[in-house]
Structure formats: structure tokens, C-alpha cells
Amino acid sequence: MSDNISREVAEAHWSKTKNLMLITLAIWAFFSFFIHFFVVPMNNIVILGFPLGFYMAAQGSLIVFVVLIFWFAARQNAIDEEFGVAED
């Protein structure tokens, strides 16, 4: 982080960054662990000929992870711009 920002601004920036990180980790944990715990009941739901549990295990979680990466990067960039510490 730049040396030209005050301590209060740096703490506010870290607070928002930490909250974003915790939200991202919660979403990641949900789609990494909790969805897969309920694969058997979700297999009763069929989408495009595939059981939902199978789809979430094979493709759905991976799609969510890729979207999550881009969402996190965009939100973090917005936070950095808000506090004047964005990269060029």
C-alpha cells in the first residue's frame, strides 16, 4: 500500500478488503463443501437430462469458482480505486 495515505484510510481500506475476502471465502466454502454434502438429495432434480448433484460436482462448482475470481477482482479494484491505491 502507498505510504502517502493516512492510517485511518489504510484501516478503512483493509476493513473493506477483509470483508470482501471473508464473503469470497464463504461462497467458496459453500460451493466446495456444503453443496457436495447434499449431492444425493439434489440428484432427484434433473436439469437438461443430468442430475443436479452430478452437475454441481462435475461442472457447477467450477463455473462458480471462475465467476467468483472475476467478481472478486472487480470488487477489489473498486475498493482500491475508492481509497486511491489502485494500480495503473
Rank of each mutant, 00 (worst) to 15 (best):
V67R: 11
F38I: 15
I47A: 02
L68I: 03
L68M: 04
S32W: 13
N44F: 12
A57F: 01
V66W: 14
V64H: 06
F72S: 07
P41V: 06
F50S: 13
Q59R: 04
G60L: 08
G53R: 00
F37Q: 13
Q59E: 03
W28Q: 14
Q59I: 09
W28M: 15
L62W: 15
I27G: 13
H36A: 12
A29S: 04
A26I: 12
W71R: 05
V40E: 12
I27C: 10
A26S: 14
S32A: 12
M42K: 05
F34R: 03
I35W: 12
F31I: 08
L62D: 09
Y55S: 09
M56A: 08
G60D: 13
V66Q: 12
F30L: 02
A26N: 08
F38W: 15
L48S: 06
F50N: 05
F70I: 15
Q59N: 07
F38S: 12
A26K: 03
F33D: 11
F34D: 09
H36W: 12
A57L: 05
A26P: 01
F37Y: 11
I69D: 05
W71N: 08
F54E: 00
A26D: 06
W71F: 12
F70E: 11
V64C: 06
F30D: 05
I45P: 00
I27T: 10
G60E: 14
F50K: 09
I69N: 07
Y55P: 05
V40C: 00
F38H: 07
V64K: 01
L62N: 13
S61C: 04
I69F: 12
F70H: 13
W28N: 15
H36V: 07
H36M: 14
I47Y: 00
L62R: 13
I47L: 03
F33S: 07
I69K: 06
V40T: 11
F65P: 00
V39I: 11
V39S: 01
L68R: 03
F54C: 02
I69H: 04
M56T: 04
Y55C: 07
I47D: 01
L48N: 09
V39H: 03
F33T: 13
I35D: 09
F72W: 14
F34K: 04
H36F: 14
V64D: 02
I47R: 02
M42V: 10
V64W: 02
F37V: 03
A29L: 08
G49S: 00
F70V: 14
L68P: 01
S61M: 04
F65S: 03
F72A: 13
V39L: 00
M56V: 08
I69M: 13
V66S: 10
P51Q: 15
P51L: 01
Q59F: 08
G53T: 00
F33A: 11
V64R: 02
I35F: 06
A29C: 03
A29F: 12
